[in-house]
Design a protein around this nucleic acid. Structure first.
Lengths: 319, 319
DNA sequence: ATAGGTCTTTGACTTTTGTCAGCGTTCGTG
DNA sequence: CACGAACGCTGACAAAAGTCAAAGACCTAT
């Protein structure tokens, strides 16, 4: 520990745990109050000091309870679109990050997929000091029109949480099924994909199948290919892989050429946290939920209403 | 949720998660800034907002590493007695409380014993919002010369953590072995004692066997009885029960008349956090460590030095 | 040895936050 | 329905925290 880190720790301890004022801390440590203020800010930024707020505000809600019951989910958080005059688009990642942090336990292994949503989340993720946590990349890499590529995203989340980040050094999609299969069987990659089963928590969103969807924009698929997939029953995208409307892995060239977490394995992970920002992802989300990819859900108020209506419409048919 | 709680949550969210200033929050929620300040203080007090500082300052230390290695402990925290001009006696419970909170995971079941130390800890324990946590009482009740009796102590810790507190409705010591045995077999009590095996974490200190020790002061034993125990090999007290110098349960009238957690069960709990405030407890602590009752240890610097010296003195004999 | 760079520290100033008496509202009670 | 207690809210002031330019410390390369 550097000596300035030591001072920062001491300052943080005296200020936050003992409740001394900055000038009192300054007197204790024999440096100016201005310095103390600087150290404290750094301690907060680095995650030495953790300030967290319960996300109860978003989960304590009649609609959330109803959704949990109707869709058999473990927990639902609903982001209001009207009440607070905060920009709802900016609010979603903040809520998601807070929920994510709440779901992490010390020593956990956490899988993260990639997409606009996860990228946004990484970008505003607060710093924390979660020693013993490992963040693993669920899907292969690809070029991206954002600041972070998938591997950078995993690394960034790991960095901010003071956790270990493990990258998957393979492309998301290969040009031939043969190569994809060979690569999946490479010991390094195979072990890494298998180790995803040890995760206690995964974080992802669901991708749409429109011609301007994420996979298309990142160049993994052409608009035509995507459209063809849509016509042959594609319902959404999970960790780079296409699923049908019931959430089953779709047997298609793209999926066969894909290096990503086994969907069967993902389903067995205890906490599967899904964040959906855009209302346009209703159909894909329904598919993901039906496929068992969701145990913890963060959605907008209007999306929650639509989901509930959908399940209530189906309920009579079942019961 | 009361509407004022709702406002408090919103204020806390906007202030701590979005980083708005109090006046901005006030404008958002259409109330005066002074009220916001009040809400925020309440949110902190209640544990809606959690501010925690890493205890690294106390564990990141050469001596701590050495102790962990020498005594095969999972983690050691050392409270300095000189560096910070904070009263060391007051510092110990603060460190212990922070460590305790760090060791808790969501959903855990936690056993707490009772003694001066645990009482001090309960008294300064910060408020937190650990839903799904259960705090169980490890040992029976007895009158106490402190503010809290064992059951109140459990309840108080539970209350502050927003966790469920489960009390053991039995006295610590009974007048006859027969009655103690019968009571232990009462379904309610038996189940509760058995359920201690499900704990992921226990918190306790170790008791001394001097004639002014805790058990004597609380009236569980007379000074003469305690002295006799000392002469027949008693080394310390764990959860109200006397152990010998090697940390084994001592077969004595007191132990046979005692209602408390089975020591065998305690040894199997993964995280066994021990806090020792007084340097006079050196011998009992040695017994507790030898008996396998400690995996996480919080001690003073001088106690750490004595422990290390003791183990280093023994090492040559073993190796 | 020294010039030039980076990182710390500080005093002085500004902004933000904490506090508290007093006012208004609500709610339970006689 | 009137009364008082309890609670929430506010404005004004006091206290504490944040900020920043400038000075100083420290390191490195010439």
């Amino acid at each position: 520990m550097r000596s300035t880190d030591q001072i920062m720790h001491k300052a943080a301890w005296l200020y936050y745990m003992h409740g001394l004022r900055q000038d009192e801390v300054a007197k204790q440590l024999n440096i100016s109050r201005a310095s103390i203020a600087t150290y404290l800010r750094r301690a907060r930024e680095i995650g030495i000091v953790n300030i967290s707020t319960s996300t109860q505000l978003f989960s304590d809600d009649v609609l959330a309870r109803k959704l949990e019951d109707a869709l058999s989910l473990d927990a639902v958080w609903i982001v209001p679109e009207d009440r607070l005059a905060i920009d709802p688009a900016a609010e979603m990642p903040v809520v998601a990050a807070a929920v994510f942090l709440e779901l992490i336990n010390k020593g956990d292994r956490i899988g993260v997929a990639w997409g606009r949503t996860v990228y946004h989340l990484a970008d505003i993720m607060p710093y924390a000091d979660l020693q013993g946590v490992t963040v693993v990349q669920l899907c292969g890499n690809l070029g991206a029109p954002y600041n972070y590529r998938p591997d950078q995203c995993t690394t960034e989340i790991g960095r901010r949480l003071n956790a270990e980040g493990i990258n998957l050094y393979a492309p998301l999609v290969l040009s031939s099924e043969r190569l994809a299969s060979d690569l999946r069987n490479e010991p390094v990659i195979r072990e890494q994909l298998a180790s995803i089963a040890d995760c206690q928590l995964v974080l992802y969103s669901v991708g749409g199948i429109e011609s301007d969807s994420h996979l298309v924009r990142c160049g993994a698929l052409t608009a035509e290919e995507m459209q063809a997939l849509g016509e042959s029953g594609a319902g959404g995208v999970i960790a780079g892989q296409v699923i049908d409307h019931e959430g089953r892995w779709l047997d298609c060239p793209h999926n066969r050429r894909c290096i990503s977490a086994d969907l069967e394995i993902i389903r067995t992970i205890p906490k599967r946290m899904m964040v959906v920002e855009e209302d346009s992802k209703f159909q894909p989300l329904v598919a993901a939920i039906k496929g068992g990819f969701v145990s913890h859900l963060v959605v907008t108020h209007s999306m929650a209403l639509r989901l509930l209506a959908r399940w209530e419409a189906e309920a009579p048919r079942r019961g």
